[in-house]
């Protein structure tokens, strides 16, 4: 681990000022990913600006009737919140499907959005990696990529985003709120993560030094009939192979609002808009659902060794939406 400075801040402006003057500074939330990466020098910040004690914690009603989850809210508290569980149950399920109880107690909602891929090549400083060392190459593409992306990868990077929470947020049209020295701003989660392209090291649309302050869930996306299902290699404490967050409203057998997002398939939560469009406004039928899932996966470009994810994602969309429809 490289030596680093540490500052605990009490005000957002104080945090922003510190990072404005030090481009090597990083915000510290729960540290559950950042500190691990620092141990292997995958991350080597000049200083950590500890934002855990900023007054950004808690879940509150948003002006539009939705919910706003403060950036420093712990994953555990976000998952346990009664209104999250009532209105956005898939979000609670997603958070609880991740990590362990101890890690969820430490991890924060803002930090969760910014966690790094678990690609083994990224995590091993002796390997090349375009995300870690731009231009050095992507050994996963010819190498071990059994758990890598099937959508929207590039020859520069085939890694997936590891978050469970972000997948549910994507299905619920979440908006990320942040603060810069220029004032507050917001960006839809659907635009928060950048396409891989030839810049896999640039992961989000956050301006330099920006501090995430909250994630909001619009009222219109609230959906008690929602579900997060995570497929993984063991029963707990593993990242998703493929996951799906889905929200479904049926009116007289017709599909009303439908939100579907996939995890473990791309460098960001993969919003299944093709499937959603195929389902929306149509009668809900098994055949229609399979066709919709098929249409979504038609755009998949599996790698040499991860074609099973196409089957798995298709099956998961069908299984979870069928389950939701039968409730």
């Amino acid at each position: 681990m490289k030596e680093f400075g540490y500052r605990r801040v009490k005000h957002v402006q104080e945090a922003l000022a510190l990072t404005a003057n030090d481009t090597g500074a990083r915000y510290l939330g729960g540290g559950t990913n950042l500190v691990d990466l620092m141990k292997d020098e995958i991350e080597a910040p000049s200083q950590l600006v500890d934002v855990r004690f900023l007054p950004l914690s808690g879940v509150r009603e948003a002006p539009d009737g939705g919910l706003a989850i403060g950036a420093t809210t712990s994953n555990s508290d976000a998952a346990a919140h009664p209104e999250v569980r009532r209105r956005y149950p898939a979000l609670s399920q997603a958070v609880l499907a991740g990590a362990s109880g101890q890690l969820r107690n430490m991890a924060t909602v803002g930090g969760n959005l910014l966690q790094r891929t678990r690609c083994a090549y990224f995590a091993d400083p002796s390997e090349p990696c375009n995300k870690r060392l731009p231009g050095s190459g992507c050994p996963a593409l010819p190498g071990e990529h059994h758990n890598h992306a099937i959508f929207d990868w590039s020859r520069h990077c085939v890694a997936t985003h590891p978050s469970d929470m972000a997948v549910a947020l994507a299905a619920f049209d979440a908006v990320v709120h942040y603060e810069t020295l220029d004032g507050p701003a917001e960006i839809p989660l659907s635009e928060f993560y950048l396409p891989v392209g030839d810049t896999p090291h640039r992961e989000t649309a956050l301006p330099p030094g920006a501090l995430i302050t909250a994630v909001s869930l619009p009222k219109s996306a609230a959906c008690p009939r929602s579900r997060y299902r995570k497929v993984r290699e063991r029963a707990s404490y593993a990242f998703a192979t493929v996951s799906v967050a889905a929200a479904l409203e049926l009116h007289d057998g017709l599909v009303g609002r439908v939100g579907i997002a996939l995890g473990g398939v791309a460098s960001r939560p993969w919003r299944a808009r093709v499937a959603e469009a195929a389902l929306h406004g149509e009668p809900f039928t098994g055949a229609g659902l399979r066709d919709a899932a098929e249409a979504e996966l038609a755009a998949a470009k599996p790698l040499r060794d991860n074609g099973y994810k196409v089957t798995l994602a298709r099956n998961l969309i069908v299984a979870v939406l069928t389950e939701l429809a039968e409730r």
């Binding site: 678990r118 090549y121 995590a123 091993d124 050994p139 010819p142 190498g143 071990e144 707990s236 404490y237």
Partner: peptide, 25 residues
């Protein structure tokens, strides 16, 4: 233990990548 087909090195030389049963298994 998974080896990189190009470098011949073990890719998953830690417990994040080399899975053993968790309690829930």
């Amino acid at each position: 233990g998974v080896r990189d087909p190009v470098s011949g090195r073990q890719v998953n030389a830690d417990f994040a990548g080399y899975h053993i049963p968790a309690h829930a298994d």
